[in-house]
Design a protein around this nucleic acid. Structure first.
Lengths: 345, 345
DNA sequence: GTGGTTTACGCAAACGTTTGTGCAAGTATA
DNA sequence: TATACTTGCACAAACGTTTGCGTAAACCAC
């Protein structure tokens, strides 16, 4: 009873040819001038036997799979999980299914993963690259399959991307700290040389420079991990000149930093202030709620899918590059040391 | 230059037949007694032109895609994001790629999503069902494609599953509250009738019964959302008999509850205690750190993949049903009202 | 030099679609 | 009444693999 239901079996049961059945079931009945009666018959039979076309065969024949690839460094990071969530949902709304690759920040995983996506004939790929070299991806985008970058991008690339204006974010976050009287600000970065890090750091440095404090810059760290935030903070808390504020470049780094601070018995923001990049529901519930530069995660996800769809539909590479403005969300993790000085002095 | 690289083009360039090329490139050279020299030639050419087999064609022909489907209610929920993370990584370690479907707790999304997975000939499906009826999935598991349930399962089903021992979790969490002197405990549940909710509630009720407090049971709520936790807590804070403790059945419900409590100006745990299900990094950083029944997320993910692989390899349904023990993590969100009464009295 | 193995490969069908082209019968036009 | 469209469908190739079977040549034994 669970026979195979193919276009062929339907053709045999209805007496029409395979091509006619195909045209009817793929909505080309009109164009092929199939008679109303025939359409009826075939559709009935298709419904009766619960026919579902083989997407493999369809993809093989048409070279279109209605599938996109999503390549991210880590689904464990809530930032990427949120990004993935909106991308998967948006893609579905366009009729696309998403294949997810988690690279764990490893370049060879990235290559293998993308190769696997291409072997599957995905119609497009959204990727947060962990490597530095755009050439490979550019080549794919030009000759094979549309690629859209999110979150991270390359120096001068023809690849379209959508990301936060990281320079602005770094600048404004630092300005906020400066305006609250902090002059000894530690910046804990993630994967060095990645564009977001470089831009955020550039913003940080420029803000310091604006106050003539460039030589006070302190940049440490090397990965977007809790561990990194923890260790770097641990180190600095024991240093001679303890910073009055920490600028964490991601939510993971933030958590590590907070852990270290708590262990040292210091209080946020009384003893040390902290500000972070990223945004998520939990940050409002942390003790104290964390002041942050919020990235527009949903917008990034939605726009990246939209760009990819455009590139797929127009069958050509596009070159849209979008930088979205981050937003400062002020909570209670940054103390105003000017007021404090007044009070004390 | 970016010619198509198929087994056919390689066959033309090397002068060997398509079948020979196929056998060599799919590792069947030995069995087919292809000479060492031929193997060399073909492999060289394949490497030279960077040949990657079409997984569509391969899947169509062999009925094996090395792909699994993952169906979850919401990637926004950090619990499912963590689950997805380990599943995607583990599957990759077995050589499988994962297609993710986000049902948004909607049964028709679930059906469509799974239909789409089947149309793609996935080799197996891991699913957290949002519907109540196992029949459809059981049928798929029997006749078409292996299915493994995670997190939620059905009353009496032949489907294999791996989940937390939710009864035990509900029971122990409630016991912990009772042992701390709470007798007025509000339980805020998620999607009703889902097995985890029913089991956790059963545990809650049984613990109360053990102290002869069954008539004090208060169960409210209807979904695993922040909104639900917020509204139910809001309601109860204004009721005549304010509970002394809240048992939130998920991290989302927890966040909503905390928000409501804060808005009311009450303090945790001095005015009201709270305990939750689930576990994640952030819960340690919340004010105060939240006491919780931790589900073994990674184990659930790993085991579900393992079971699915077993079912795929053995080409038959399996009936392993695993309940993993949750673990109580004591933090600071539950007050001991006995001690307090002593002090006050 | 005959018969039987072994070695090394090729032929062609099949997986389930889509689609360009062909063609008979019916209808309209001249 | 011949000509020209139109209607309604069928044929068969193609997408890129895998695989059962067939077979020519070489080798061996006698």
């Amino acid at each position: 009873m669970e026979k195979k239901n193919t276009i062929i079996s339907i053709s045999e049961r209805t007496g029409f040819s395979v091509s006619t059945v195909s045209r009817v079931l793929s909505g080309k009945a009109e164009a092929a001038r199939i008679s109303k009666a025939t359409v009826e018959t075939i559709q009935q039979e298709a419904k009766r036997c619960n026919y579902k076309p083989s997407l493999l065969a369809k993809g093989l024949r048409t070279n279109k799979t209605n599938t996109i690839g999503l390549v991210i460094p880590s689904m464990e990071n809530i930032y990427f999980a949120n990004l993935a969530s909106t991308i998967i949902r948006d893609a579905r709304a366009y009729g696309y299914t998403t294949v997810t690759v988690d690279t764990m920040e490893d370049e060879s995983n990235e290559r293998n993963g993308i190769d696997s996506l291409l072997a599957r004939n995905v119609d497009g790929i959204i990727v947060t690259p962990c490597g530095q070299d755009p050439a490979w991806l550019e080549n794919i985008n030009r000759n094979t399959t549309p690629v859209v970058l999110i979150d991270r991008y390359f120096n001068s690339t023809e690849l379209p991307y959508v990301c936060t204006d990281n320079y602005q974010g770094g600048y404004e976050a630092t300005r906020y700290l400066l305006n609250n009287g902090h002059e000894n600000i530690l910046c804990i970065q993630g994967t060095p040389y990645s564009m977001p890090v470089r831009e955020r750091v550039r913003g940080y440095l420029n803000a310091l420079r604006g106050k003539g404090l460039e030589e006070r810059a302190r940049i440490v760290g090397d990965s977007f991990s809790i561990q990194n935030g923890y260790l770097e903070t641990k180190l600095v808390l024991n240093s001679v000149s303890r910073p009055t504020a920490i600028f964490a470049l991601s939510n993971t780094i933030l958590l590590g930093a907070i852990k270290a601070i708590r262990e040292s018995g210091l209080s946020i923001p009384n003893d040390i202030s902290i500000i972070t990049f990223d945004n998520n529901t939990f940050l409002d519930f942390i003790d104290p709620p964390v002041t942050r530069m919020s990235q527009p995660v949903n917008e990034i996800g939605t726009l990246s899918v939209k760009l990819l769809m455009q590139s797929i539909d127009e069958k050509r590479p596009i070159d849209t590059k979008l930088q979205l403005q981050p937003q400062l969300i002020v909570c209670e993790s940054v103390a105003n040391v000017l007021l404090e000085a007044e009070r004390v002095g």
